[in-house]
Design a protein around this nucleic acid. Structure first.
Lengths: 190, 190
DNA sequence: ATGACATACTCACTGAGTGAGTATATCCAT
DNA sequence: ATGGATATACTCACTCAGTGAGTATGTCAT
């Protein structure tokens, strides 16, 4: 049971697998292929990592693997999302990412990928929400910077870099918005 | 012995501890304090992590802990750098960081911190080197982007974000250069 | 004297990530 | 036909990252 798993950390690759499985049941091998093809610039997961995550997810009851025995080949396992898994994924899909360089690059893009596959407009909403969060965080950091004791040069440099990075993220988010908006208009699905 | 430890990963906090110990022998507790005070914007290490790293470093023979028995208090351990540890640290100190957002923010700033403490001019050299590396990597990524199959939108978005982030790093490095140069002139130690 | 805070460290845990190994099928060139 | 590359599909054993709670003791103010 263990109620709340202690660290299904925000940038965890678990949700990526849940996402793929929410689209179609698959084997570990296929998941690795798909991940590499579609999100290879975002995630770099080895095969063995995929399998270890799958085992963990099964342990938590979020997915269910069914052994498919084969004549000669060793059995393979086809994984399907459980109801609990589906719920978890939905929850994650509409939550928002902590505005930090790494998290955005990894987690947010992943979320965007799945949101877009489901409904381009939903993806656009996510971007808008993230822009707001990022702006808020940026202001926070700028405030922190101005109130920082000028002594610790390296802490200040670190902070300055973070701010610059957040700023570049903001620019990126806005360009995302444009791209997604254009795509929606180009091929309106409704 | 184990010749080459498999993953004394580039952004490993190990070198940070080696660095502090290269300045002065210290206890785990002190190291945690110092790290938080001087590089708190860069590293977030819990106490227990500090101790586990120290144990590992001792296991590798890079540092040496001497038990100081006390009347009533449980013994504390004072850690000193070994010759091997010193060597490792020197090697790391003049190597260059992989030009990626995270690595620069964590590893490079740390390196800069120790380089600067030793000799501001050395720090300046590191910055210059890093600028060159970053520019080279930037060109590489831009080339990759233009040759990327336009189909995988999300891979492209990921790449685009990386490029923007590297670009902001470049800006930051240049501002570092200015700051360090000014500091050198302001108080010429030679 | 008691409760907050600082010093100093340990333990048990989950999770990230790597690298090598296993087993089998298929297909291509020699 | 045979042997070697490549693809499918998964396992194991490992190190390192990171958290949270716990232990033990001293100091200092109220």
């Amino acid at each position: 049971m263990s109620s709340n798993s202690p660290s299904i950390g925000s940038v965890s690759p678990e949700f990526t697998l849940l996402g793929f499985l929410s689209q179609d049941p698959a084997h570990g091998y296929e998941l690795h292929q798909k991940l590499t093809a579609d999100l290879g610039q975002v995630w770099h997961l080895s095969q063995s990592q995929i399998y270890s995550i799958l085992n963990r997810l099964e342990g938590k009851g979020l997915i269910q693997g069914s052994l498919q025995k084969q004549e000669k080949l060793p059995a393979k396992r086809l994984f399907t999302l459980t109801a609990a898994g589906q719920e978890r994924f939905e929850e994650w899909l509409s939550s928002s990412s902590r505005p930090s360089a790494r998290v955005i690059r990894i987690e947010f893009i992943t979320r965007l990928y799945f949101a877009y596959a489901r409904d381009p407009d939903f993806a656009l909403q996510l971007v808008e929400g993230q822009i707001a969060d990022t702006q808020a965080r940026l202001q926070q950091l700028e405030k922190l910077e101005s109130s920082q004791p000028g002594e610790q040069i390296f802490n200040q440099l670190g902070l300055d870099l973070r701010i610059r990075q957040l700023d570049s993220i903001l620019g990126w988010l806005i360009s995302c918005q444009d791209i997604l908006a254009t795509l929606s208009k180009g091929s309106p699905s409704a």
